[in-house]
Design a protein around this nucleic acid. Structure first.
Lengths: 168, 168
DNA sequence: AACAACATTTAGATTTTTTTAAACGATCTG
DNA sequence: CAGATCGTTTAAAAAAATCTAAATGTTGTT
């Protein structure tokens, strides 16, 4: 192996590890980033065993990770004729991944946050209504929550704005 | 305690827990969300012991969590005359938190990703140069990496775009 | 149908992260 | 300066997430 090839092997592994750290820092496990990066650095589809061997990891982990990545449209299953294995390749259009993975999960989280907000806002208003006069404390919080819900609405609108969507 | 007050107490706790799950899902611990939400639902500053008691959690956890939140400008230290304790209050302007916390950390991550990209791209080009003729495999990957770096640049530009910044 | 070649599930092991209690250090008070 | 009151650090425990080996399920082949 030439010196340049050795350097490439090293850099490649560092890159895969960096990918793992990145997904880890976003609260998705380390496997997701490693698997994706591994496939990204292959110019042809690979099967589960290839990936597991390449990452020095069990096939079970890869099986689970690959399924998550498919849900994010970050990898794609590919059939190769005459072979029963499942092959996978990386989606190279990051825009697709951002839109279908990141933005979508963000929107979903925003929705559940909005529901929680509405619930807590409602109950604080009820409690404030009970105490006429001395409920200033509760009324302050109610006001604060109203602001929060307004912000939530703005953010939601922004993410669903077609112009903003096109930016990604 | 009236029924409405009881409902508010319950809703309040569910809200705090939801906040914890949210930060957790973003890869920041659960404490951050719980502490922030707790303070958000107080209309006056609270000291470490109050927070720890309110969340049924040790003071050490709160001490650590509060420091992180300060780094994100999500909470603020407040001095109250005649009291030696440190008091904290929640930043209610979410725009501030988004800009100084979320976007900033995103930019930082993008930068390190960019460096990794440059390194691996460089070494794959070196390795490809070594094999004249049969290095098609490597050249494909080099092309792919070039695209990735272009995307990285676009994204970086977008996040630093003053117009986009103002959206947040 | 029996077998072979896979992918997937799961219970348990491992590793990592989080949390805590206790020690420590710093700052104020009398 | 001695004691009291905090916040922080740290070493160890607890909890949670991750990973694996083995079992199970599935699909295709003879």
């Amino acid at each position: 192996m030439t010196e340049a090839e050795q350097a490439w092997t090293d850099a490649r592994w560092r890159f895969i590890e960096a990918g793992g750290r990145t997904t880890q820092s976003f609260g998705l496990g380390r496997m997701l980033g490693q698997i994706y990066t591994f496939l990204y650095l292959c110019d042809e589809p690979r099967c589960l065993d290839d990936i597991a061997e390449g990452l020095a990891v069990s096939k079970a982990s890869v099986s689970i990770g690959v399924r998550q990545l498919e849900g994010w449209l970050a990898v794609r299953k590919v059939w190769i004729k005459g072979d029963r294995k499942d092959f996978y390749e990386a989606e190279t259009d990051f825009g697709v991944i951002l839109r279908s993975g990141f933005l979508e999960s963000l929107t979903k989280k925003l929705n559940t946050a909005g529901e929680q907000l509405a619930q807590v806002e409602d109950s604080v208003k009820q409690a404030a209504a009970g105490k006429n006069g001395d409920g200033e404390h509760l009324r302050n919080i109610a006001r604060r929550l109203k602001d929060a819900r307004r912000f939530h609405g703005k953010l939601n609108g922004l993410l669903n704005n077609p112009i903003v969507k096109k930016l990604f």
